[in-house]
Nucleic acid binder design. Sequence first.
DNA 1: TTGAAAGCGTTACCAA
DNA 2: TTGGTAACGCTTTCAA
Lengths: 329, 329
Amino acid sequence: MSDVARMAGVSKMTVSRVLAGHSVALATRERVQHAIDELGYVADAAAGALSSGRSEFVAVLVPSLASSNFSDTVRGLAAALEPQGLQLLLGDTDYDLQREERLVRSMLRHQPRCIALTGAQHTAATRTLLRRSGIPVVEMWDLPSDPIDTAVGFSNVKAAREMVRYLTERGYRKIGFLGGASDLDRRGLERLKGYQQEIRAQGLGEPRIVRLGDSPITMSHGGPAFDALLARWPDTDAVMCVSDMSAFGAIMQCHRLGLNVPGDIAVAGFGNFEVAACTHPSITTVSVDAHGIGFRTGETLLAALAGDGVQGSRKSVKIDYTVIARESA
Amino acid sequence: MSDVARMAGVSKMTVSRVLAGHSVALATRERVQHAIDELGYVADAAAGALSSGRSEFVAVLVPSLASSNFSDTVRGLAAALEPQGLQLLLGDTDYDLQREERLVRSMLRHQPRCIALTGAQHTAATRTLLRRSGIPVVEMWDLPSDPIDTAVGFSNVKAAREMVRYLTERGYRKIGFLGGASDLDRRGLERLKGYQQEIRAQGLGEPRIVRLGDSPITMSHGGPAFDALLARWPDTDAVMCVSDMSAFGAIMQCHRLGLNVPGDIAVAGFGNFEVAACTHPSITTVSVDAHGIGFRTGETLLAALAGDGVQGSRKSVKIDYTVIARESA
DNA sequence: TTGAAAGCGTTACCAA
DNA sequence: TTGGTAACGCTTTCAA
């Protein structure tokens, strides 16, 4: 910066002001800009953050960057925050609470202005770290009963119950559920819980549950899980899956077995992933506005920063979901 | 840090040493650690970076975080770099060179130790910025003729030619290509080029090319593109797609049209995405080690940092690819 | 509209 | 093994 200042014949302060877009005489500004371009000067954000006492980072943690659900959420966040000059500090927890804690610790060292994480489940140490940091926190994709600060999400339990109701309205009675075996995927567990509640509430007999494989649930989940379900309960007439990925695998398995979907058996997914619309038959699913979760989170965070910039809003932003009726159920 | 030092009855320097893992008497270290835990002290990375002159950031730019190909690459990078205490600074260029330039500029402000970007195509300003920064640069997913520094990738042209050879060896002669309409997806264009070269080389008549839609190519690409291909060249016996996403869409369209794959028409993809293995019929494709590209990139960067930490290695790391024969072609 | 000085929280360096 | 001091490159604050 001193070099630029010397070349433009001004003080460092003027260079700083030009960079920050503060008022500077036009002629001066042009001279400074010219010097910047000439020298290829790039300001040091770390020095700026140290001096001003605030960084331009926003920390974001999702379970899996590979899942289109969460990458949509990240895009929504970016759409809301990047125009404000904020930098996303992205992390992938891999559905691992310990890893989440490590990432939070590491990100907090960069003094982010605020932080968005996924889910309501965190280690005690994570919660302590976040509270002590004092910065605005948003938990996404769920509506925790005991939020750290703000939440932007929806009830996975209720959404799953709605899907069961959709299926029973269509006349299905012997409804199975395909989910993951791991307890780390809380949202998956909530969906399972919703399924169980609604099956019980409607008196549809014992729940037919297959839990298989690790999170994230991938396309290769559906086939084996479907086989396991039919092996145990051969008269099942509809299958509800914890995610569209699994539903897709189940439908492909039906193709292989020569089963007609939904004629012989109906299949429903969750999440409205791209594959759901493109598969033949197209997959009935619960559509969640993943991008919207990110964007609303971004807006919420911006509002908190525009205020006092500390945590404590304790708002809950509810995100809509809807059952999308397609061909498979 | 002063607070911690006071509480532990030592100087700030000793606290710094404990944090950095330098040699400190055990008793002292324990007292300091206790004070750190007690106070919930989190060191300021920005101050550390400023003082030491080096950050712990690695900048990474991919065209799309949502594409499992690139998210696998990011995971590979994280696997190689996070154990070294490096923080990924992730950006999503959205296949937009201007956006890439903005992101590079913004990331360079954080003084990353090194940077990995995707592809060989960048704006002139981006190239200048990167050269002037002096930090090690890796271009991934391609083997540029004029690399900025190091490259880790493979020839998309050659890989596509290999797929055409696979198809002709299987007896297919009237082979079409489904790709995107945008010239921004350079790797897609290279694949198209490889297709054309090999069709010409084998004297298979005029190339049958459909270019439709924007990058990234999604599952909804394949159906309409497939229809366009058959409308123009009804006797086509095999379709080669720029990506598995498109191939999947094409196969679903075949299901709808009652066409047997590969009996009536063969379909091949590119990338070995998860969907390729799970679709019925499973999709013949070119498998690229996306995770390996990330991991090798990480290793390359670590080697550069362990050396002088500046750009100029000019290596080219070739990544393997193979045609995976499955049911669809 | 511009400049000078102080200081942000850490680490490098040298000294004890 | 530990401590004191001087940076690091910027922004804040106050003065001109």
